[in-house]
């Protein structure tokens, strides 16, 4: 017959499910970028000089601007989370609007960097890597852009409370991941 086991009360699936789902989703994205860094290391290890001689390099000011944009975006998400927890409902929607605008600026700056890269004819393995990694990171950021729009509309309708705001928490985590990854990528692409 059945044995007796102790079990904890189940966490509310509507709250814990999205959290687990986001961890898994970010794991998949993480593996994609691990593959890209593996590719970078593979190509980099075969080159005698890096960047290869006569290869134009990307101006850094766009990357610094992008870093500022993504940092602002992450801060906006952090603020939205804290404000929701504090019960300050009116301030949540502006924080989400700021998150969207800074996130969109970040995607735009990546797009600008890719355009500049093509204009200065970054080619070969160095240029290919640069463009591809920027593209995939822009894709990661663009995938997270609809979230603040949806959450903004919900925040305007007053759907979030200090207890129930899982959407803001998980999408905030998504953008923290995006920002942290950009910091690593910035270092790898521009300084190594």
């Amino acid at each position: 017959m059945g044995d007796v086991i102790a079990y904890r009360p189940k966490p509310d699936p509507s709250q814990s499910g999205p959290k687990v789902g986001m961890i898994l989703f970010l794991s998949a994205w993480g593996m994609l970028f691990v593959s890209l860094f593996f590719t970078w290391a593979f190509v980099r290890a075969q080159a005698d000089v890096w960047p290869p001689p006569d290869t134009p390099t990307m101006p850094r000011h766009i990357a610094w601007l992008a870093t500022a944009a993504v940092a602002l975006c992450a801060a906006a998400w952090f603020g939205a989370n804290r404000l929701t927890r504090a019960g300050r409902r009116q301030a949540v929607a502006p924080a989400l609007a700021l998150a969207f605008l800074s996130g969109a600026a970040f995607v735009g700056l990546h797009a600008w960097a890719i355009v500049v890269g093509r204009q200065i004819r970054m080619g070969g393995s160095y240029g290919s890597l640069f463009m591809t990694m920027l593209f995939f990171h822009a894709l990661l950021a663009a995938t997270g852009l609809p979230a603040p729009v949806v959450l903004f509309r919900r925040a305007l309708r007053g759907l979030y409370s200090p207890q129930r705001h899982i959407g803001i928490r998980v999408w905030g985590a998504y953008w923290y991941f995006t920002a942290a990854l950009w910091v690593v990528m910035f270092g790898v692409l521009y300084f190594l």
Binding site: S27, A28, W29, M31, L32, S35
Partner: peptide, 8 residues
């Protein structure tokens, strides 16, 4: 975990 590698 591994299908994203095929994606790359």
């Amino acid at each position: 975990l591994f299908l994203p590698v095929l994606g790359v």
